[in-house]
């Protein structure tokens, strides 16, 4: 398994504010990595650094290249969708296809045709005449037809309705993803990517606070739901967080003994949102 992205001590300051503060992480090929963090945590800055759009301090190699110095070369192997609204409004659908075919050596026109054929998009339309969902479909058709090793998605479904969001991720998984490809995605809608991720990166205040494969989450983190009379005993086991839900107490543990928890109540696997609260909002808040 090859390392696609290697970041060490990535730092970027805008004036006094540090958007990235020594972020260190790696992304291996064939993975679908979710980069999750609250607003202003440095997600977008990290993606910009990876895409060569912003210069950062620290070490950063993407596909063995320095992204800022070699952006044009990097973009032959890396695609990205910043968010759905960035296709220029004056561009016609056919022009968009022709342009990408003209400038991108790894673009497969036949694949793009296949994707477009499944939509109701008229080739003669300008982007501004398309609905937001259609613009996403068009952008996705263009990007999925590029034989790239890394696809970066920054809030790709922002502002889309539920149906379009679902279609977006379905196409991505069914028509695009394979062992050779890697996806790095940021989103606020954690629930909708929960089931497709293979790895999780939490970022907070410019630092990586959690870096784990999804499959090891159940080994490390457990959620315990207990009746109020057991809450005291549950607190003794040093949970990361505690909250109350419908009269019951919900605790999240890191590295706890599952058998000890089983004796107190119902043990569940925590969701990404639960982990997010524990890791980022921090402790017993």
């Amino acid at each position: 398994m090859a390392t696609l992205i290697e970041a060490r001590g990535l730092t970027k300051a805008y004036g006094a504010k540090r958007a990235l503060d020594g972020a260190t992480f790696t992304v291996e090929s064939g993975r679908i990595v979710g980069l999750i963090g609250p607003n202003g945590a440095g997600k977008t800055t990290a993606l910009k650094a990876i895409l060569g759009l912003a210069r950062c301090e620290g070490e950063l190699r993407v596909l063995g290249l320095d992204p800022y110095a070699d952006r044009a070369k990097l973009m032959q192997q890396v695609s990205f969708i910043a968010d759905v609204a960035v296709l220029p409004r004056w561009l016609k659908v056919q022009q968009a296809v022709d342009f990408v075919r003209g400038v991108h050596p790894r673009f497969r026109p036949d694949r793009c045709e296949q994707f477009l054929a499944r939509t109701n998009i008229d080739r003669r339309s300008k982007v501004k005449e398309l609905s937001k969902g259609m613009i996403t479909q068009l952008h996705l058709a263009l990007v999925m037809a590029i034989d790239a090793r890394l696809l970066v998605l920054d809030e790709p479904t922002l502002g889309l309705d539920i149906l379009s969001r679902k279609q977006f991720y379905d196409s991505l998984l069914n028509d695009y993803m394979d062992d050779e490809r890697t996806i790095l995605v940021t989103t606020h809608q954690v629930e909708e990517i929960e089931n497709i991720l293979t790895d999780l990166l939490f970022i907070d205040r410019g630092r990586i606070v959690l870096d784990t494969p999804m499959e090891s989450i159940p080994e490390k983190w457990l959620q315990l739901v207990v009746a109020p009379d057991r809450a005291g005993a549950a607190r003794e086991l040093k949970p990361l967080t505690e909250r109350q839900l419908l009269g019951r107490h919900v605790f999240l543990y890191e590295g706890a003994d599952p058998d000890a928890l089983e004796r107190l109540g119902e043990v569940r696997q925590p969701s990404i949102a639960d982990l997010f609260v524990a890791k980022i909002q921090g402790g017993l808040a």
Binding site: L51, L53, R71, A72, K73, L74, M75, Q76, S79, F80, I81, A82, A85, V86, L87, P88, R89, L91, F99, V100, V103, H104, P105, H139, V143
Partner: peptide, 20 residues
């Protein structure tokens, strides 16, 4: 204009150098 409508991010996702 492409910075105003953010389409610069689309153009910059193509393997085209800024000099070109």
């Amino acid at each position: 204009s492409d910075r105003r409508d953010r389409s610069v991010l689309f153009w910059k996702s193509m393997p085209v150098s800024d000099a070109a």
